[in-house]
Amino acid sequence: MTAAAAATPMIRMSGVDKFFGPLHVLRNIDLEVPKGQVVVVLGPSGSGKSTLCRTINRLEPIDKGTIEVDGQPLPAEGRALAKLRAEVGMVFQQFNLFAHKTIVENVMLAPVRVRGVGKDEARRTALELLERVGIATQADKYPAQLSGGQQQRAAIARALAMRPKVMLFDEPTSALDPEMVQEVLDVMTTLAAEGMTMLVVTHEMGFARKAADRVLFMADGEVVEDATPEEFFGAPKSARARDFLGKILTH
């Protein structure tokens, strides 16, 4: 990697505004995420965290501003956008595994259909990834036959199969029973340690402290605080962040 390529941020958002009808959901967002950084996004419900996440691969189009991924401006709809999305992994709160396909088929699907990888090779890679996230024995089951934690790990494997440059996680453990949260966080922590660039919306403070390089606190569509985990959890600057932390830490 040349110095210039290393210096290009993985994600750059500048002056981004997003409306849902009259609702101003993202307000003038400026954000740069360098390569390899792990960012945790916190904030009360409705503050725009999911929307922020979803604008980065244009699942939600924006109304103003620019977004670049690895120096490339987000294309409008079409082939170029599909190509960019293939390089940005996304993990959803509800897993969204393809319900009519087995776990291994879920993981193979995009490499075969989008990248044109041969079936045998895709299957081998898929099984390796499932091994890595600890569910190789579930490969031939359907999503509905797996526990939530297993489904989410499969969803992470499915995203990794495209060898993404960056991974977006939108509350990946919020739909899980408490006893399954840790197995998913463990996979994410490993990924972070391996140098993956990650943007993670989560309320898991343990993960934020342990794996994050940076914490963003959002409220009403704005990034209110941007700090290291130590700074943020030790001495939040804004009253809203203090209020928010007070609420979730007493849970």
């Binding site: 599909a82 999305r85 959803f92 989008v114 969803a155 499915r158």
Partner: peptide
């Protein structure tokens, strides 16, 4: 569920 199509688009399917 819309999440099925979103997951597909997020993976780069047209």
């Amino acid at each position: 569920p819309v999440g099925q199509a979103e997951a597909a688009r997020a993976l780069g399917l047209r």
